[in-house]
């Protein structure tokens, strides 16, 4: 499990040089587990770009925790493009003036070329008969999630549960907070990150349910065997986006705007979309989604924008110091 270990060792910069003699070089600062996606995507783009323009392009990758990566870019890491798993990370760069204010409008689909959802992983045969969010809050249930304040994965879970509670009859913020509080009380620990949560659940056999990205389920199958667990899709869950953006300041300085723009646009091409699907990320392309339907069962999702009015708002209301998460823990 070398890939696994790498992903947990914190900020890890893996710079992969692909071509020695290049007309242009692009650096893609990306989140941790995107390694697999871009490992296949980059050569595809190089080939495409060579055919189209005759230009040889060198592509470098930098992977790390999403927030850490963004801070590195803000502090001067010369990335041409950022491909993240939380929009508030890109908002931060927009605030700093590195990324266009209207970055989400610069590309289709909210500038997110593919999506995923939050799903439940339960033990084989679903012994606790877990079907939906309310089961997770039942007494005696053990829920394994990463730290909601410190990890994107944890935050997505938290917001999904909150959104579900809002949509219940008579749902409001107060009821939602109470519900999420009950759910969190069922967490015997908050894992250090998504992969740590997976290890805790699968290897150390702790807890009854693990909540994680749909795309992670396939990783778990590869690592621990398909027969060890079942995936349960709740009645409502978050559609998680993977926003991308040009780092305006860097592309202007390096003169790589054309290539960087093309690189990101290529994510929406048939090839780019198919690559995402093969990495168990839901493509935006409806045809492909149908083609890979066996990976992607229908699911009722919400977006953070719809329910919480944007990632920044959601973060401020729930995860900033004094937000709803702190209130749950500190009021007593």
């Amino acid at each position: 499990m070398p890939q696994f270990r790498k992903s947990i060792s914190g900020l890890l910069m893996a710079l992969v040089a692909s071509a020695a003699l290049a007309d242009a070089t692009l650096l893609n600062a990306s989140y941790d587990v995107a390694r697999d996606v871009y490992k296949d995507f980059n050569p595809m783009f190089q080939k495409y770009w060579k055919q189209k323009t005759g230009e040889a392009i060198e592509l470098k990758q930098s992977h790390g925790g999403s927030t850490k990566q963004v801070r590195a870019v803000a502090d001067g890491l010369e990335a041409d493009v950022v491909t993240m798993n939380q929009s508030n990370d890109i908002e931060f760069l927009a605030d700093k003036g590195l990324v266009a204010k209207d970055w989400a409008k610069k590309f289709p689909n909210n500038a997110s070329p593919y999506t995923s959802t939050m799903v439940f992983i339960v033990r084989k045969g679903n012994p606790k008969a877990i079907k939906d969010w309310n089961d997770l809050a039942a007494s005696g249930m053990q829920v394994i999630i990463p730290h909601p304040k410190n990890t994107g994965n944890g935050r997505n879970t938290y917001l999904s549960a909150w959104a579900w509670a809002l949509k219940q009859p008579g749902g409001n913020d107060k009821a939602a907070q109470e519900f999420v509080g009950k759910l969190l009380k069922n967490a015997p620990l908050f894992a250090a990150g998504g992969r740590d949560a997976t290890t805790t659940f699968m290897q150390r056999k702790m807890g009854d349910v693990l909540i994680t990205f749909e795309s992670e389920a396939e990783m778990i199958a590869k690592e621990f065997g398909k027969g060890e667990f079942e995936v349960v899709i709740p009645s409502l869950t978050m559609q998680t986006e993977f926003p991308v953006a040009l780092v305006e300041k860097v592309v202007d300085k390096k003169g790589t705007r054309k290539q960087a723009q093309a690189y990101l646009e290529y994510l929406w091409s048939k090839e780019g979309q198919e690559n995402a699907a093969q990495n168990y990320l839901r493509p935006r392309d409806a045809e492909l989604l149908k083609k890979y339907a066996h990976f992607f069962p229908p699911v009722k999702t919400f977006t953070v924008d719809e329910v919480f009015g944007g990632a920044n708002k959601a973060f401020a209301a729930h995860f900033k110091d004094g937000g709803s998460f702190d209130q749950i823990y500190l009021s007593k």
């Binding site: 730290h147 410190n150 967490a187 015997p188 620990l189 908050f190 894992a191 250090a192 740590d196 702190d326 823990y329 500190l330």
Partner: peptide, 9 residues
């Protein structure tokens, strides 16, 4: 962080 459980308070 891998062994603590990281529960607030």
């Amino acid at each position: 962080i891998f062994i603590a459980g990281n529960l607030p308070l």
